[in-house]
Nucleic acid binder design. Sequence first.
DNA 1: GCCAACGTTGGC
DNA 2: GCCAACGTTGGC
Length: 156
Amino acid sequence: MAKNYWLMKSEPEEVSVDDAIAAPQSTVAWTGVRNYLARNYMRDLMRVDDGVLFYHSSCAEPGIVGIGRVASTPYPDPTQFEKKSKYFDPKSKKDEPRWQLVDVQVTRKIPNITLAEMRARPELADMVVLQKGNRLSITPVDAKHWKAITGRLPKG
DNA sequence: GCCAACGTTGGC
DNA sequence: GCCAACGTTGGC
């Protein structure tokens, strides 16, 4: 089965690429997704070893700051059951969890490919994340876009 | 802080 | 099932 590729947004004030790299195995559980389409991508379409573009959002310089991989099969997001969490979902049942997530492992940090830089590159113009009105925190990435982005990174 | 875009909720 | 109101995202 061919690999799929994904762009996953994280607010650096919550989980930055450095936070992820500092975590055990440089791996973090992708908690807090509360959008059904984004959930469905994780639950139904992601496979272990799919490629991940780690994106910083809601910050001074939004952009792609790391490369990673899907590091687990889907499982229930624990924060949906934590009453003190801002991601608590009172409608979710333990025996029928509403929100699923995957683990993401960051394999390397890269110099920020900013949103402005992405928009300036014609070969990236039809990336889902760049489309007008897109707000999804997880979007699929075409293999051609993955190659265009990862194919011209500095060594390291 | 503003606001465009879009998802969710709830009354009917 | 419709749709107005409301909430959230996220760039600027």
